[in-house]
Computed example of a mutant assay.
Amino acid sequence: MDKIKILAIAIFAFTSLNVMAQTDKATTAKIVEAKSYTFVARSATPLNVQDISAVLGNMPGAMQGGSINLNESYYEVKVTPDSVVAFLPYYGRSFSAPINQTEGGVKFKTKDFTYTSKKGKKRGWDIVVQTKDDKENYRLAFSIGDGGYATLSLNSITKQSITYQGYLKENEAK
């Protein structure tokens, strides 16, 4: 009798998870196809992991490893059909330092960009956003899963590449 109860609970749990995933999958598909979503960064992995780990290992708390946890939820890239706004931290080597120290990281707002979206081979989407501003051009390559989790690879001429892991959410109505 106990085996039947355990089997019934397991089937119910898997069915419930599948229903939740389908709702999330539909929302993800809707916002990606509408080009209206926000990528929220939860962790960052710089290109020069060894150098960053050496520095972080000497700090209080002694973080180790290549991934940097971003506890705050305000590091994001907001995509709309007519603009892209980014506010992300940057860890790595920059080949040109900003004159104003408050302009560090990856912060930009642009209306001049190209947007290429391609459905993944098995699932999800591969999206490339290429900015065309005078100050600095960025290439943002999103790899988005059906469940809304995403990876952002950011490339620039003046900075080493960095990768962010996070998730998508709907843009809030104004």
Rank of each mutant, 00 (worst) to 15 (best):
N48P: 02
N48A: 03
V49D: 00
V49A: 06
Q50L: 08
D51S: 11
I52T: 08
I52D: 03
S53Q: 08
A54G: 13
A54H: 12
A54R: 13
A54N: 08
V55E: 02
L56Y: 14
L56Q: 00
G57T: 11
G57Q: 09
N58G: 07
N58W: 06
M59A: 09
P60S: 04
G61D: 10
G61E: 12
G61A: 15
A62R: 12
Q64A: 08
G65T: 06
G65L: 13
S67P: 15
I68P: 03
I68H: 05
N69R: 05
N71M: 11
N71C: 07
E72F: 15
E72N: 07
S73A: 11
K78R: 13
V79L: 10
T80I: 05
T80C: 09
D82Q: 11
S83H: 08
S83R: 12
V84F: 15
V84H: 10
A86Q: 06
A86Y: 07
A86V: 01
A86E: 01
F87S: 04
Y91R: 01
Y91C: 01
Y91E: 00
Y91F: 06
R93A: 03
F95Y: 14
S96H: 02
A97D: 01
P98V: 02
P98H: 01
I99V: 11
N100E: 08
N100F: 07
T102Q: 06
T102R: 14
T102W: 14
E103Y: 12
G104Q: 05
G104S: 01
G105C: 00
K107I: 06
K107P: 05
F108K: 04
F108A: 05
F108Q: 02
K109W: 12
T110G: 04
T110Y: 05
T110E: 03
K111I: 02
D112F: 13
D112T: 04
T114Q: 15
Y115K: 04
S117V: 12
K118V: 15
K121Q: 12
R123Q: 02
